[in-house]
Every structure is written in structure tokens, then in C-alpha cells.
Design a protein around this nucleic acid. Structure first.
Length: 898
DNA sequence: GCGGACTGCTTACCT
DNA sequence: ACAGGTAAGCAGTCCGCG
């Protein structure tokens, strides 16, 4: 097909239309129909890749049921179009079983299954038994035949029916089926060794990887740094390096946001019913397109708000026309970003269009159970991505706390939602336009900021995990890790074990957790030495657990391996042993990722001699690696992980305890006082350069792991509580860990007082400075106390506790915590609440002693409760400073007993 | 009927 | 749907108290 038609079909920035907005809106449906015709008749949808396609990024893959083939979406960065490439290799879905074809032929339901194709005999390596096994590959015509949702799929038929037809009454070995739950397009990706996120060409109809010389040179440079690594690891380092060094494209994308006018202002309209009209849609494109599409309605006033001059406002006489205009956008962008589009915007648009009787092929959206995908491009739902705990904590350092457009926008791009005083239906056109446009703008900026960080992060994670970008952005870190593990199993012709087989063979855990209900013992926390300490060096193991997995060869294969000769290679503090003969896959994969991050990407991301764009790219990569590495140990202890293996997690933690204990002993032997330590760190009091060097060298030599000086505190303040301290760095910045004063649920009033103390402490340089600082802190606390007593606060909201509702309201049956009491009062008032909502309440004199802020008044506040809170918040720091809260607020020792 | 000792529940944090 | 360890506050229970 000709390039030209495709370009026309996509209608990006091209021709700015001179026709006035109104006229254009009227012309819209005609234009759209023309486009549909064009697509259908001339060039057809899907936009098939031509016989020869220039280098393009593999961004997505799916199974196309109609075509009965895997479909790969390629993003061509010059034309900025998506091209579809359908499998033409004849690859088919399959699973494995330990039954022979002879035995399988007796199973009637299998042989007569409409989706059954044929058998093949294969030799695979079984990592659990550490030997080669013969298995039968059952090949099917379509993926649903293997493991569809309906009853009677092949993976269920075999264990159900074989025992009935077997001539031997009791089978010696259980009937087993393997690899039947792998998504077909993932299976295809692994088997064909395709690398999502990487660059491909179509040559004479075939999909072939494109070699980029510049990136290859970088890979070679990188490999020089790792010359010393064992050859076994080199293979993996190079493989990862290629995935990470290849560049990212410039993306073309649009952020969209819709507003729906419902009759009840407080209630979110149900997207499945789509009962109310879509009244406004905003589009903010990376090609400069900024549009607000408004539905004309009776009795709505124009309004006086002003939008930026480059925003085009378009009015529509009918909602149908408006929908068609939005759909045109969704048909044309390779990437569409939303905030909660899976559950709202795209779902609503689809059902609304269906209510109007749109034909299926006129709607550009594919609605799934939990997701909404696009027929042409990719839909990235930022809500799902930012909701991911690993992303929130490790990629964005907890900079946003609530996963709302307002909070994420404020924290990452400094833009907040426009506050609404009325319902959507009561806004003037310009108020509505402004509100809706801002949402699209925040969504856009969240995608564009820091050089398209989010899309590039998704791209890098897609490469590491061999997943389509859409899946990566919606799924958790355990899926990412599982998928690259699966990929390597297939690459090495390993049978992918069933979770129940790993568990049955390797069993549960041997240690006892400190916390009731946990599966095994975790890390050590050292009892802190209370007081103020000057010149504190914090030393830690960079990525301790991944290092342990690497150095100790941990993995489900190697822990409790079948070789008798390995049984002496014991894991400290456990009765378990680890394999000496063969490297575990996890150890190789996680170990090489760790080395790459520590020895290459972390340094490159700080290398000022590199151009800023490259540095930022390296920073994105090291951030992606950080996210994966941080979870790489935990997944083995997570029942939901497909390679769940509790003894592996337990071993990792046990070796960690062993390592830190040895460091502490050695430090003390060297005459260094250990003030505190947690999991992978030790806090050393005023150590000399020599002492530090000796400790580093000893650790490297004895434990085969690096111990680094992470930071040096000018001084640190410890109470007697673990996971609670304050440290002032050389540059005057302050680390506050675990103290109540930084917890997000405490009232702003108390938090502000705490922050003023923190700022004062940051100014202290010498022990002598302390005396002055103490006086100021005493004054601050007294001041705070009297303001409370006199009820002199700026607003009631300063006194609100903000606690997240962890469960649905009805599910608090064992106890009724205070925030739940407040939430129930709110519910009485008709406010809808669900799990995850933040409840703001104040403490009041009368039963039940709590009230939602918005319902409370100044005089019913229980001031003494707040004084008590102030007390406990400051106590954590005051006792180390030798101060006493009660004395500060002027109570004599005697008065305290009264 | 009430207060203290205790356990358990819940949330937010640390590594 | 990555893990375990810690702090804090409150809810609820049990028991003693002539």
C-alpha cells in the first residue's frame, strides 16, 4: 500500500484549518465518514506494514482472533505512524504434557476437540529434576483451545480424562501439563526471540531486527568494563546491555480527558450505562494540537474565562458529532494517554457511542474486562502506571502520595486541577472548557516531562520484560520479572515449572518470623544508641539482596538442589543448602542486572561529560533497573509469583542477616562504635579513614560484596526507637526517617511545628551551636502549645488527621478505628466512599470523639488530645536533646501527677 | 461499673 | 498482589475490685 494514503489517514499537525470553529464542527461528520470510506475501500484497516518497512519500534503485540494470528504493532518514528505486522511464520499455540502421544490418543475429548491440531515429541531440560525429559507438545489451532475461559479446554481435559481411559489403574506419576497458562502472544515473542521495545524492519514481508551501529559501539564499550566477569555472566550482561543501549524514539501522542454531565453532582457516572451526555473533551497533542470540544446545550452561558490563545474551542450541535470528532483523534495517534481511561474515559465513550447505535467498526476502542485498548495505536493509562507501588516508591521516590491527577500533577509537574465549586452541569462553557483542558494538560505534561520519562521508562521495562508497552504500564513488577524469567527458560529450552511443583519439591520455610502471620524471618535492625552523635558515617551494601542472589547462586533450581554433593554448602542460619554445580537462572539474570546498574548505569547517569539527553536516558535506565532489583528478592516470597519459592526468599534474608552481623562484629573489632543499623546498613560513630578502608577491604574479601560509604552526617539524632532518626548532612539538608513528624496522617498544625524544628536543627554545625538551637526549639514548642490552648489556628483543616480508608467501609468488622467512625458519619451525609479514599477528621470533645473536618466547629475541638499528639511527636527528638516536653510547656514535676 | 494490663487491628513508615 | 520489621494509637477483652 502507498505511504501517501496512510499519511492522509492519520491527519496529524498537517494543515491548520482556516474555517471558523463552528463551521468546522458541522463539517466534521462528513469528513469522518470520508475517512472511514478511505480506510475501508482504498487502503483498508488495519494499516498493514508494507513489504518493506523502514526501521520501526516493536511497541505492542496481541492475538488477533479474527485473523487467527499474532499481531505486532510497529511504530515508525519518521512518519510517526503505527504499522501492523501479522505473523506469517505459521507459529501455533501449544502446551506440554508428560503423557505420550500413544496415551493421549486414547483421550476422546482431546482428539475430537475442534481446536486440536497435532502432537510433537520434544526433549526439554527440567530444571527441577536437573535432567533432560521427553515431553509431548500438544499443538492447537487457536489459543483458546489450550486454556480458554470456557470449560473443556485442553489443559483441563488431560488430567480429567486420562485417568479414566488409562489401562494402568494407578498411574505412577501424576499427569502433568506445562506452559498452558502463558499468554499466546508472549509465547510467540519468546519462541521467535523477539524483543519488544527494540527496532525492527520489515524486509520482503519478514520481521527482522535492525542493527544500529552507534548503539552496538556503546555495547562494546560497556563490555570492556566487564572484561573480568565470568564468561557465563558475560553472555547475560551483553544481552541486557543491547536492550538498554538502543535508543528510544521520539513519541507522538495525545492526552485526552472527557467530562460527563450527570444529574447527581457528587456521583461518578457509571461508564457501563453511559446514561449521561459527554459534554466536553480536551485533546492535548505532542504535535501541538490543543483542542476543547464542547457540546452545545440549552441554557448554558458562555462564561468569561480565558484559555490560552493556542487552544481551539469547538462547539458541537450534537453529541454524536462530538463523539465522532473524538474518535477521529483516537484513530490517528500512535499513543494516547489518559488518567483512568481504562475504567472511565474510553469505556464511557464506547458505551455512549453504542447507545447512539454506532457500528462496531466506527468505534476505535477495544473494551476489555479491565482495560480499554485502541484498535490503531496504544493506550497508556497513567493512573494504572502511577498506581504501581514500585513505580511510586522507587522510580518517583514517593514524591506523590495520592494517586490522583491533582496530587501526581502537583508533585511531578507542578500543575494542579482546577477546583470546582459547582457540578459539571452548572458550569459555563468557558469554565467547563478550562477545567477539562487543565486535566488534559496535566495528563500531557505527566507524559512529556523530563524528556518523555514515563514513555521511555515503559519502553525500557518492555525491553527488560519482553512485554508489550501496554501490558508493562498496567501490570506489576512481579509480572515483569516473571516474563523475563520465562523468556530465558524458553531460550535455553527449559521446561517452565508449575508453581505447585516448585512448592512441593522445595517446600516451605524453616525459620520463624518475628511478626505473627509472616512466613519466615527477615532482616536485622540494630538497637540504636540514643543521643546526638557528630560525624556519623553510614555504610551500606548497594543492592544487598540482588548481590546475595548473585554471589550465593540463589534460585529455585539451586536451593535444595537434587545433588548429594551440594548438601554441605549450607546457607547460614537455615538447614538448607545451595547448589555448587550449576548456576541458577535467577542468579545470572538478577546478578547481571545488578552489576550493570552499579558499575555502568549509575555512574553514566551522573557523568557530566555526557550530553544531557544521554545522561537523562541513562538515568531512566538506572531507575528502571532499580525498580526491578528492589523487587527481585521479594517476589520469591510472594505466593502470586509464578516461580514462588519460599526457601529462596528465606535464604536471601538469612544471608543478609549473616552479612550485617559480621560487619558489625568486624567494625567493633576495629574499634568503631556502631550506633545503628538496618538490613543492609551500619551507622558508624566518627570512624577514621583507615578504619573505613579496612572494613571495606575485609568485606570485599570475606563476603565478596562491596560495602560503600553512602553518606556522612554532620550529626545524627537517635531516640531509643528503631527506624526513627534524624540526620543532618554536610550540606545542611536533613534526613528524617520514621518520625511521627513526617507521617502523612498527622495534622498540618503539628507537621509545621515539626518542620520548623527541623529547619532549626539543620543550622547546627557544632556541639556548641546546639545550646542556641535548643532555646529556639523550646520557644517554638511553647508557642505552639499556647496557640493550641487559645484555639488560635488558621483553619480547622490544619487540625485534620488524614487517614486512608484501607478497606470498603462494611469490611471493618473486628474494630472500628477512628477514621472509619468519621467515614461512617460522612456516609450518613450522603458522601460516597470507597477503599483508598483519604478521610480527614478532627478530634472533638463529645462522643464518638471524632468528626469529619467539614462538619466540625472550632469550639468542639478536644485541645488536650492535640497537646498529647504534639507531645509524642516531639518526644522522639527531645529526649535525645535532653529536653522534656512537660517542662517546656511549664508544668512542674508535681503538676504532671495531677 | 470502672480502670489497668493485655492483645489485636490498623495505618504509616524503613530497608 | 515483591518481602519482613517497627512504631503508634486505638478498640476490645479480661480481670480484679470486698
Amino acid at each position: 500500500m502507498a505511504q501517501k494514503t496512510l499519511d492522509e489517514f492519520s491527519m496529524p499537525k498537517a494543515k491548520p484549518k482556516e474555517i471558523p470553529a463552528e463551521a468546522k464542527a458541522e463539517a466534521m461528520p462528513m469528513l469522518f465518514t470520508e475517512k472511514v470510506e478511505e480506510r475501508k475501500k482504498q487502503q483498508g484497516f488495519p494499516p498493514l506494514a508494507p513489504e518493506n518497512l523502514p526501521p520501526s519500534y516493536f511497541v505492542s503485540a496481541t492475538y488477533d482472533g479474527k485473523a487467527g494470528k499474532v499481531l505486532i504493532k510497529l511504530y515508525e518514528p519518521d512518519s510517526q505512524q503505527i504499522y501492523f505486522w501479522y505473523d506469517n511464520t505459521g507459529h501455533k499455540p501449544y502446551c506440554y504434557t508428560n503423557l505420550s502421544p500413544y496415551e493421549l490418543e486414547k483421550i476422546d475429548r482431546l482428539m475430537k476437540h475442534s481446536g486440536f491440531d497435532h502432537f510433537e515429541i520434544e526433549e526439554k531440560f527440567d530444571p527441577l529434576s536437573d535432567r533432560t525429559v521427553k515431553v509431548t507438545k500438544i499443538v492447537a489451532k487457536d489459543p483458546l483451545a489450550i486454556g480458554g475461559r470456557k470449560k473443556g479446554c485442553i489443559r483441563d481435559i488431560i488430567p480429567e480424562d486420562f485417568p479414566k481411559v488409562s489401562e494402568i489403574p494407578v498411574a505412577n506419576e501424576a499427569v502433568k501439563v506445562w506452559e498452558s497458562r502463558i499468554k499466546y502472544y508472549q509465547s510467540y515473542i519468546y519462541d521467535r526471540r523477539l524483543l519488544p521495545g527494540m527496532v525492527y524492519e520489515v524486509k520482503n514481508g519478514a520481521l527482522v531486527p535492525k542493527r544500529l551501529e552507534e548503539a552496538e559501539k556503546n555495547v562494546q564499550k560497556l563490555m570492556q568494563v566487564f572484561q573480568e566477569s565470568p564468561s557465563e555472566e558475560l553472555e547475560y550482561i551483553e544481552q541486557w546491555a543491547r536492550l538498554l543501549e538502543y535508543p528510544a524514539p521520539k513519541f507522538r501522542y495525545a492526552a485526552i480527558d472527557i467530562e460527563v454531565c450527570s444529574s447527581i453532582a457528587t456521583r461518578m457516572p457509571d461508564p457501563r450505562e453511559a446514561a449521561y451526555p459527554v459534554v466536553c473533551v480536551s485533546v492535548y497533542g505532542s504535535d501541538g494540537q490543543k483542542r476543547v470540544l464542547l457540546l452545545k446545550r440549552e441554557g448554558v452561558r458562555e462564561g468569561t474565562e480565558h484559555l490560552p490563545a493556542d487552544v481551539k474551542i469547538e462547539y458541537f450541535d450534537s453529541e454524536e458529532e462530538l463523539l465522532r470528532a473524538v474518535f477521529e483523534v483516537l484513530w490517528s495517534y500512535p499513543f494516547v494517554v489518559t488518567f483512568n481511561g481504562d475504567d472511565f474515559d474510553l469505556r464511557y465513550l464506547t458505551h455512549r457511542a453504542e447507545n447512539y447505535g454506532f457500528r462496531r467498526d466506527e468505534i476505535p476502542i477495544e473494551v476489555g474486562k479491565r482495560v480499554c485498548l485502541l484498535k490503531y495505536g496504544l493506550h497508556i493509562d497513567l493512573y494504572k502506571f502511577f498506581f504501581n507501588r514500585s513505580i511510586q516508591i522507587y522510580a518517583f521516590n514517593n514524591r506523590y502520595r495520592d494517586v490522583t491527577l491533582d496530587d501526581v500533577g502537583r508533585a511531578l509537574v507542578g500543575l494542579e486541577k482546577i477546583p470546582l465549586e459547582k457540578g459539571i452541569g452548572d458550569l459555563t462553557y468557558t469554565e467547563l472548557a478550562k477545567y477539562c483542558f487543565r486535566d488534559a494538560e496535566i495528563t500531557y505534561k505527566l507524559t512529556s516531562f523530563e524528556d518523555e520519562l514515563v514513555l521511555k521508562l515503559v519502553l525500557v521495562l518492555a525491553r527488560i520484560s519482553s512485554m508489550p508497552m501496554e501490558d508493562v504500564s498496567r501490570q506489576g513488577v512481579s509480572r515483569w520479572i516473571r516474563n523475563f524469567m520465562h523468556r530465558e527458560h524458553r531460550r535455553r529450552n527449559f521446561l517452565i515449572p508449575n508453581a505447585e511443583d516448585i512448592l512441593a519439591l522445595k517446600g516451605k520455610t524453616a525459620t520463624k518470623a518475628i511478626i505473627k502471620g509472616k512466613k519466615y524471618k527477615g532482616a536485622i535492625v540494630v538497637e540504636p544508641v540514643p543521643g546526638v552523635h557528630f560525624n556519623v558515617a553510614v555504610m551500606d551494601f548497594p543492592s544487598l539482596y540482588p548481590s546475595i542472589i548473585k554471589v550465593w547462586n540463589l534460585g529455585y533450581q539451586s536451593v535444595l538442589c537434587p545433588h548429594p554433593e551440594c548438601r554441605t554448602n549450607l546457607i547460614p542460619d537455615t538447614p538448607n543448602w545451595v547448589c555448587k554445580k550449576k548456576r541458577a537462572l535467577e542468579s545470572l539474570l538478577i546478578g547481571s542486572l545488578r552489576d550493570l546498574r552499579v558499575q555502568w548505569y549509575k555512574t553514566k547517569s551522573k557523568d557530566k561529560s555526557l550530553p544531557p539527553e544521554l545522561r537523562s536516558w541513562y538515568n531512566i535506565i538506572q531507575g528502571a533497573l532499580k525498580v526491578i532489583l528492589n523487587a527481585s528478592y521479594g517476589v520469591f516470597g510472594a505466593e502470586t509469583f509464578d516461580l514462588y519459592c519460599p526457601p529462596v526468599a528465606e535464604a536471601t534474608a538469612a544471608i543478609g542477616r549473616h552479612a550485617i552481623t559480621q560487619i558489625i562484629n568486624m567494625a567493633e573489632k576495629l574499634g568503631i562504635q556502631v550506633l545503628y543499623g538496618d538490613t543492609d546498613s551500619v551507622f558508624l560513630k566518627n570512624p577514621s579513614k583507615d578504619q573505613i578502608r579496612e572494613l571495606e577491604e575485609w568485606t570485599e574479601h570475606e563476603l565478596k560484596m562491596g560495602l560503600d560509604v553512602d553518606k556522612i552526617y554532620r550529626y545524627a539524632v537517635f531516640s531509643s526507637r528503631k527506624k526513627n532518626y534524624l540526620g543532618v548532612l554536610e550540606d545542611g539538608s536533613v534526613d528524617v526517617k520514621g518520625l511521627t513528624g513526617k507521617k502523612r496522617h498527622i495534622p498540618l498544625f503539628i507537621k509545621k511545628a515539626f518542620n520548623r524544628m527541623k529547619e532549626r536543627l539543620a543550622m547546627v554545625k557544632t556541639p556548641a551551636d546546639f545550646e542556641e538551637a535548643k532555646k529556639d526549639i523550646v520557644k517554638e514548642i511553647r508557642d505552639c502549645y499556647t496557640r493550641l490552648k487559645r484555639r488560635e489556628w488558621e483553619s480547622l483543616s490544619e487540625l485534620a488527621f488524614n487517614v486512608v480508608l484501607g478497606e470498603e467501609l462494611e469490611r471493618y468488622t473486628k474494630t472500628t478505628p477512628q477514621h472509619v467512625k468519621a467515614a461512617r458519619i460522612l456516609k450518613e451525609e450522603g458522601v460516597e466512599l470507597k477503599a483508598g479514599d483519604l478521610i480527614s477528621f478532627v478530634k472533638v470533645i463529645n462522643e464518638p470523639h471524632v468528626k469529619p473536618v467539614e462538619l466540625a466547629t472550632k469550639n468542639e475541638i478536644d485541645v488536650d488530645k492535640y497537646v498529647a499528639y504534639l507531645h509524642s511527636t516531639f518526644d522522639q527528638v527531645l529526649d535525645a536533646l535532653g529536653l522534656d516536653f512537660d517542662e517546656i510547656i511549664g508544668l512542674t514535676k508535681l503538676e504532671r501527677f495531677m
